[in-house]
Amino acid sequence: MLCENCKERQATVHLTKIINNEKYVQHLCEQCAREKGEFDFDFPSFSLQNLLSGLMNLDAQSAGQVMGFTTQKLQCDNCGLTYAQFGQLGRFGCSRCYNAFNERLVPLMRRIHGSTQHLGKIPKRAGGTLKLRRSIEELRQKLQEAVAREEFERAAKLRDQIRELEEQAREGENNEQ
């Protein structure tokens, strides 16, 4: 199949867009797709992005039918993007969209990433006390192990460390308010 745009090169990029419940398929060569801004050069797999809007629409439709409400009502109060628009674009509008669409994100993220919990880096300021709380959790685990092995000296030290971090976390939370 030849590219719809230049009619010269082979069409290797097949874009599916759903606008007002109508499905449009565009066939482009990579170069034209890139020129149209449809193709991010370091986006790893183009087909994944195509799949995305399909997945999200599937969610929107079935959830709407089952629960008896239209998903159009889900809307971000900050940027105005609706869940339906999110489904069409495959993009969030702002950071607060994540709160607005939160109930729909779990199945979506599980399909894309096979996970629903961030485990990587935590930013110093924006992460708030999360880093501290993660450390406390780790120490608690170690404490349990120490107690189970009857390493009481070590357990006492861990308990002190935990108390100290908890104190820091409390201070941090007060500062945030």
């Binding site: 969030f92 950071s95 994100l105 935590i122 300021r125 999360l130």
Partner: peptide
């Protein structure tokens, strides 16, 4: 950059990105 800029970060979703395929670490390594 994070010392001065207010990053969009969420405890569950990590670094918040435009495309859901980048969320979490926001990291693409190649």
């Amino acid at each position: 950059l994070e010392e001065k800029l207010d990053y969009a970060f969420d405890e569950q979703w990590g670094y918040l990105t435009v495309c859901p395929t980048n969320v979490g670490t926001g990291l693409r390594a190649s």
